[in-house]
C-alpha cells in the first residue's frame, strides 16, 4: 500500500477510535473507565466531559485530514 493511502486509513482509524473514546468519556463515570485511560478514578462518579470534548475534536480533525488527503488529483487546479 502506498504511503499516502496508509496515512489516510490510519487517520480514519484513529479518528473513529477517538470519537468512540469521546462517547465512552461522556457515557461512563470515572470509576468505570479502563484503568489505563487518563481520567480513571476508582470510586468516582464524575463524568469527564472535557476529556470527551478534547477526544472528539482530535478525532474530527483526523477525519477532516483524511477527507482532504484522500481526494484524487485535480487536473488544472492547484492545491495548497
Amino acid at each position: 500500500m502506498e504511503r499516502g493511502r496508509l496515512l489516510v486509513w490510519l487517520a480514519v482509524l484513529v479518528g473513529l477510535a477517538l470519537i468512540v473514546l469521546a462517547v465512552v468519556y461522556w457515557a461512563e463515570p470515572a470509576k468505570s473507565l479502563p484503568s489505563w485511560l487518563p481520567g480513571h478514578e476508582a470510586g468516582s462518579n464524575h463524568h469527564h466531559v472535557k476529556h470527551g470534548i478534547a477526544s472528539f475534536l482530535v478525532g474530527l480533525a483526523c477525519l477532516v485530514f483524511a477527507w482532504f488527503r484522500s481526494a484524487g488529483p485535480r487536473p488544472g487546479r492547484a492545491t495548497a
Binding site: 477527507w67 482532504f68 481526494a71 485535480r74 487546479r77 492547484a78 492545491t79 495548497a80
Partner: peptide
C-alpha cells in the same frame, strides 16, 4: 467550499 471540493484552492 473547501470541504465540498476536498481541496484548499491556492
Amino acid at each position: 467550499r473547501s470541504l465540498r471540493d476536498r481541496e484548499i484552492a491556492e
